[in-house]
């Protein structure tokens, strides 16, 4: 059974979002997504300062078998990326909700289309 923490928001594309007090959004992929991808062996992250619209491919996670796009869960600017993933992409598998985070974004507007943990659990059931 995949872990779906209650304190996070989710997208139907299997990303999680943690909304900080200052309005920034930390983004990663869910336990369900990392399990489906299997061993992540390479991660391509966006540049700090780059801007994406909601639904744009902003990063790529590659497993041995396939490359998967990671979509911007919200329109906004990338202000931080998890450099550790360059040397240790397996952090996404080992710790999808903590050490395997991918980017921090400053959103253009408030989150609207996200799912709560219960809705996301239903989606992956």
């Amino acid at each position: 059974m995949s872990e779906v923490p209650d304190n996070l928001s989710y997208t139907k594309d299997h990303e999680w979002m943690l909304i900080d007090d200052d309005g920034k959004i930390r983004v990663g992929i869910t336990d369900h997504a990392q399990d489906a991808l299997s061993d992540v062996v390479f991660v391509e992250l966006p540049e700090i300062g780059s801007k994406y619209s909601e639904g744009d491919a902003m990063a790529v996670a590659e497993s041995v078998k396939a490359a998967s796009d990671i979509y911007a869960p919200v329109s906004g600017e990338i202000v931080e990326v998890n450099d550790k993933l360059e040397e240790s992409p397996e952090l996404i598998n080992e710790s999808p909700y903590e050490f395997g985070w991918m980017v921090v974004m400053v959103p253009d507007k408030k989150l609207e289309n996200s799912l709560d943990s219960e809705s996301y659990r239903k989606l992956i059931d």
């Binding site: 061993d39 497993s63 078998k65 598998n93």
Partner: peptide
């Protein structure tokens, strides 16, 4: 079977 646990392991 394409994989049991992990291709790498």
């Amino acid at each position: 079977p394409i994989q049991y646990s992990s291709i790498i392991s």
